[in-house]
Structure formats: C-alpha cells, structure tokens
Write a protein that binds this DNA or RNA. Structure first.
Lengths: 223, 223
DNA sequence: GACATTAGTAACAGTTAGTTACTAATTGTC
DNA sequence: GACAATTAGTAACTAACTGTTACTAATGTC
C-alpha cells in the first residue's frame, strides 16, 4: 500500500439471531487501530466490478454466500476508515444465521446490532445506513426471505418481518396478505419447536402476479 | 490533474417538461470525447462531503438549487467516464422545469429522458439507475413535490405521479388518498389553463400523521 | 386426561380503493 | 346569448382488503 489514496468496499452483513439482527465484524488489523473490531472490507482496484468485490468480501468473511447484497451508500467525509480509504462504498447483505459461520480462520464474529463494540467512525455510519436500507427495501426486495434458510415456517418469517419493522404483526392478516402475493409455497414437511403444534415448512417461490394495485401510497411520505 | 486515479460525483438532474422527464446534460469538454454531451460532474478531493459537492455541481450546472438530491449508486467498472474517474458516485436530483435554466454560460441543456443523445457509457448506466431510483423512492421521499414549483394544481401533481409511475391514475382515488395523507393544503388562488374550469392551487405542507397502517406490503415483491 | 403452548382458520366489521356518474366553472363558436 | 367543449372537483356505490376476535388443531408437560 503506497501513500496514494485508495477506495474501499465495506460490507454490513446481517443475519437474524434470536430476537435481534446480528452484524458480522472482524478484527481490525491496523496497528494504530483504536477500535478492535471493524466491518469486513477490501480495497478497490482499477476496473473492479463493485458488486463482485462485495460478494467476495462477504463470502470470505462469513464463510457463506450472501443471499442478497446491495449498495447502501458511498461515504467520503473526514470520518476515519481503517484503511484510510478516501471514498468508501458500503454494501448491505443478508444471510441466514449459522453457528458454524464465520469460520475460525476468518476471525469474524456476529454481534447483536444493538450491542456493537466500538468500530471506526465511518463504519459506524455505514452500519446505520445499511440497517436503514434493509428496512426501507424489504418490501421491494426479498430481504426477509434471504435472512432465512431455504425452508422456514410462517411464524419464523413473521418474526423476521417483525424484527426488521420493529413492531408486532397480526398473524391472520400477515398470512392472508402473504397468500395473496403468491410468494411462498408449502412443502410436505413439518417442524416441531418442542412445544405446541408442529408448523408446516414453506419455501420461497415467487410466482407471476396479476398486476398490483393501481393506487398511490402517500402514507409513507409525510413530515 | 496528475495521473493518479480520481473519483467523481456525477449528477442526474431531472425536471418535468411536457409529457416527459427531462435530464440535464452539459458539453463534454474532453479532447477525445466521442460523445458531445455528458452529465455534470466534479472530481472528489480528500475529505469532501459528497452531498455538498453534489449540491454545488447541480446548482452550477442548472442555475437553481435541486429540491431533492440523493445518492443513486457507485460505479467503478470498466465503463468509460469522461474524467477517467476510477470510482464514480451518481446522484439523482429533481427540480421544477424553467425555461431560463440552465443559464447560458453553463452550456447545459435539458433533454427528454427518452431521447437522450449518446453519453459516455458510465453516464448512461447512471442515468438508468437514477431514473429507477426516482420511481422507487417517490413513495418515501417527496420527489414528486420537488419536481413542481412551490404552488401547483392537483392535476399537475397527478400528471407528475403518472409520469414517474408510467401509468394513468384515477382522479377521485388520487385525491382521496392525497387528502387522507395531509400532504398538501389549498391556498386562496386559482389558475386557469385557458380552457375549462380554473383549478385551485395547492402548496406542499406535510403535517404529522396518525401512525400509518400496520400491515405489510408484499405486493411490490414478486418474481 | 387436564393444561399450556404454538399453528392455523373462519367470520365479522370497519376501512380503503376502483369506478361511474354527476355538478361546477370557464373558453370558444355560432 | 345559447350552447358545445373542456377541465376541475365531488358524491356515491361496489369490491376488495385489513384488523380483530374467536375459534379449532396438534403437540409436550404435569
């Protein structure tokens, strides 16, 4: 690394864990690092394709492929970056939680989003932007489905929505809307959580819909 | 300008014009430019605040302040950029259309979004991303209102929504939803378009809303 | 077997959106 | 001035959707 300014790609990788969203952090290897942890990141070389770097960094740090990955913003103010990058592009990514990931050699660890250790200031801003991005885009991109494994119960799916939205949802309304959207299909397996009636497993299988409603949603605007 | 790689901020500035969205382009001053026109852009210096550069570039090129401006993505693949930037951050911006803008000295010109002249490839990708961004965010950010002047008729507002959404809306439904959202308030002026009954003018005046609906919108997901 | 617990559904009521049809106010034409 | 044409705006009906309550179903625990 010379003194020439570099650019970076930084990944905010999220997975559901219990009642929280977890974010993947790795050890900050910088010698003068004030913070022990930081986001996984990589320098950008000329002509790199950003989306591919992001996918590679996410896989190397977590040991698995991110099911969904999208840009969450570019950052260039004076806030400190562990690699002294001039310009940093943040990506938000999601994947199911697995106990055996991240692999040992990567040195990464999942932290609950609400209880993160100190990270470099620019990374702090990126995490906030990425989490906001997940919440904003979950109704246009299959964010929630990629936070779960290939099969899941409807209660698990509802819990993920509640996690991202930050509020409780009504069971009957949730399922009715889900059915109307033709997004999932049941498979012939049931999963028992120990107590209570076993839940049927579903798979994410979006089907062509009849054209959506014609109206406009002003509700999300305001103030 | 040395040989060191630079980064750029590039602006996709939009305004409504007739039945189309117009995009602001400027002359490409590069000597070997294959295309005559390109997006307004500027190089990023260390520690610049991206949002401020974007606002400055937009104002310099158009002669007015953009009412709404947001990042639309970062681009770094091999696609050619007029300033040979390694990494480029695109911003989408909107403003009302004015015949006297852009000012002569800026050398800019509005082009209908569907009939753009050739632009450098990276700028082409940015324009597509920015227009998609406007459509996606218009229900969460007051994009439509900033495409109009401070006062407007409801028919004008509906026309902007139809322009961005690319489909016709029903007058009664549109107004009912708008009223329920407490986003505009009438002022005591009427505007005559030459033919027909004069329309009352309104002003964008969002008021605190009762908390929005509790449900989930699956409709926008899908295949 | 009684009970707690979780999954899933039925059915009602209140609200919202799509549509049709109407009234209101202006300009242009004869 | 009567009348058509044109654009603004509203009323009212219908269909669809949402929120809610209450129920049934299947399992483990005591």
């Amino acid at each position: 690394m010379s003194g020439a300014p570099i650019n970076s790609i930084d990944i905010v990788l999220c997975a559901p864990h219990g009642r929280h969203l977890a974010v993947l952090l790795v050890r900050d290897k910088g010698k003068r690092a004030r913070e022990k942890w930081c986001l996984p990141w990589a320098a950008v070389d000329a002509d790199d394709i950003l989306d591919r770097i992001a996918a590679d960094v996410a896989r190397d740090a977590s040991g698995a492929r991110a099911g969904w990955l999208a840009q969450a913003g570019a950052f260039a103010d004076g806030k400190r970056h562990p690699g002294k990058a001039q310009l940093s592009v943040a990506y938000a990514g999601v994947m199911p939680y697995r106990d055996d990931a991240p692999p040992k050699h990567a040195g990464g660890k999942w932290f609950a989003a609400g209880e993160l250790p100190p990270v470099p200031p620019r990374h702090r801003a990126m995490i906030d932007a990425a989490l906001a991005q997940l919440r904003e885009r979950m109704d246009r991109a299959p964010v929630a489905f990629h936070l779960l494994g290939p099969t899941f119960t409807l209660s698990e799916l509802q819990a993920v929505y509640e996690l991202l939205l930050g509020r409780r949802l009504h069971k009957a309304s949730f399922r009715r809307a889900l059915t109307a959207a033709f997004l999932v299909e049941p498979i012939d397996e049931w999963q028992s959580e120990g107590r209570g009636r076993p839940a049927q497993l579903f798979r994410y299988a979006p089907r062509k819909r009849r054209g959506g409603r014609g109206g406009v949603r002003f509700e999300l605007l305001g103030g």
